[in-house]
Design a protein around this nucleic acid. Structure first.
Length: 150
DNA sequence: GCCAACGTTGGC
DNA sequence: GCCAACGTTGGC
């Protein structure tokens, strides 16, 4: 059992969208480090959903990993904005996992609040210039945020 | 909307 | 293998 944080821009796909659909293939990850995290995910892993590029970025709720990693079909779709002409069918470059909605926090946990938590002092999340859209979360971080969220 | 920070690409 | 150029992310 592991924990992760996954960023999304709510203008494109929000936690509310995930709630409406119940489950969603988390496609479009085009960063090798993030992909490697995807590949180590197991069904049932906990996921914090994080909204970025909004006035108050932060964790807005939780989801869970609903499939192990498998090839992201958008990499082979010329119509997709995630199309990767360099990826080969017999050797896919990019993977995705399915993510299932779990809960929406009554109050968002803002990035500012996360920065103030000692648990997050070593996290990639609060490092300046960090652009990683998927990162590991420790059990301590997971529990602390859940407690904070009430 | 701006732009610093970062990852990737490709010429050499 | 270096590194300039480019494209993207994401806080502000």
């Amino acid at each position: 059992m592991a924990y992760w944080l996954m960023k999304t821009e709510p203008d494109a796909f929000s936690l509310q969208d995930l709630q409406q659909r119940g489950q969603e293939p988390w496609d479009g990850i085009r960063n090798y480090q993030a992909r490697n995290f995807l590949r180590s995910m197991q069904i049932g892993d906990g996921v914090f959903i994080y909204h970025s590029r909004v006035p108050v970025p932060g964790i807005v709720g939780t989801a869970e990993v609903a499939s192990t990693a498998h090839p992201d079909p958008t990499q082979f779709d010329p119509q997709s904005k995630y199309y990767d002409p360099a990826s080969r069918l017999d050797q896919p470059r990019w993977d995705l996992v399915d993510v299932a909605y779990r809960q929406t926090f009554a109050h968002n946990i803002a990035l500012d609040s996360l920065r103030a938590m000692p648990e997050f002092s070593d996290s990639l999340l609060v490092r300046k210039g960090n652009r990683l859209s998927i990162l590991p979360i420790t059990a301590g971080q997971w529990n602390h945020v859940l407690q904070w969220a009430g």
